Computed example of a mutant assay.
Amino acid sequence: MTTAYDFTLPALDGGTIDLGTLRGKPVLIVNTASKCGFTPQFEGLQALWSFYRGNDLTIVGVPSNDFGNQEPGTAEQIATFCSRNYNVTFPMAARSHVKGDGSLPLFQWIAQEGGFLSRPRWNFYKYLIGRDGHLADWFVSTTSPESRRVRLAIERTILDH
């Protein structure tokens, strides 16, 4: 059976993000954009990363230009924007498609795991992968990364051994 740990993502820095290296750890995957009304959520994502990474949580940002052309930049521009404006230090994938037939295989798998409603309909959809590698929960753009709902889901996932 396929899990999130079976996927790799092209990294923003030109390398590869191998989710297999995170096997057994919770992962929060977020499709991001630099020119979106939800872009300030980078601040909350960075706060989650800083707070929970000691508890094995990894956050992976996946920039996408699929919604409203709100991520038009090059890899260097995206990296500079995230670092300069939000001090992002969590791993970032290369700009990729997250919807449709050309979407990353990881996002195709997420759509199968979570069903039709879990497919990203805008930037900053959040997908929490449990320690077993399966989709534990997902959140729409309007759900803040620092919301009680997200934090409780992360804490349940961290405690699930």
Rank of each mutant, 00 (worst) to 15 (best):
G14W: 08
N85G: 09
S96F: 06
L12F: 10
Y127M: 08
P10T: 05
F90R: 03
L57Y: 10
L28I: 07
A79N: 10
L152C: 13
D101L: 11
L117P: 09
T2D: 08
V60T: 04
F116A: 14
R121V: 15
H161N: 15
C36K: 00
G73N: 05
T157A: 04
F42E: 05
P63N: 02
M92T: 14
D56K: 13
T80E: 06
Q41V: 05
P120N: 07
D66A: 13
T2L: 15
S147W: 01
G20H: 09
A136N: 12
G133Q: 08
E43L: 10
A75M: 15
L106D: 00
T32I: 11
D132K: 05
N65Y: 12
S144W: 00
I17K: 01
A4F: 14
T39G: 01
L28W: 05
L12V: 03
P91Y: 10
P72A: 08
G14C: 10
L135D: 04
R53K: 15
I154K: 01
N31Q: 05
M92Q: 06
V98M: 05
P105Y: 09
D101M: 12
G130W: 07
L135Q: 11
K25Q: 11
T32E: 01
S118Q: 02
P10L: 01
R23I: 08
A33Y: 07
A111N: 13
V140R: 14
F42P: 00
G14S: 11
H134V: 11
W122K: 04
F67C: 10
W49E: 03
G44P: 10
G37K: 08
K35A: 08
L28V: 08
D18M: 13
L128M: 08
K35S: 07
G102Y: 12
T89L: 07
E146K: 04
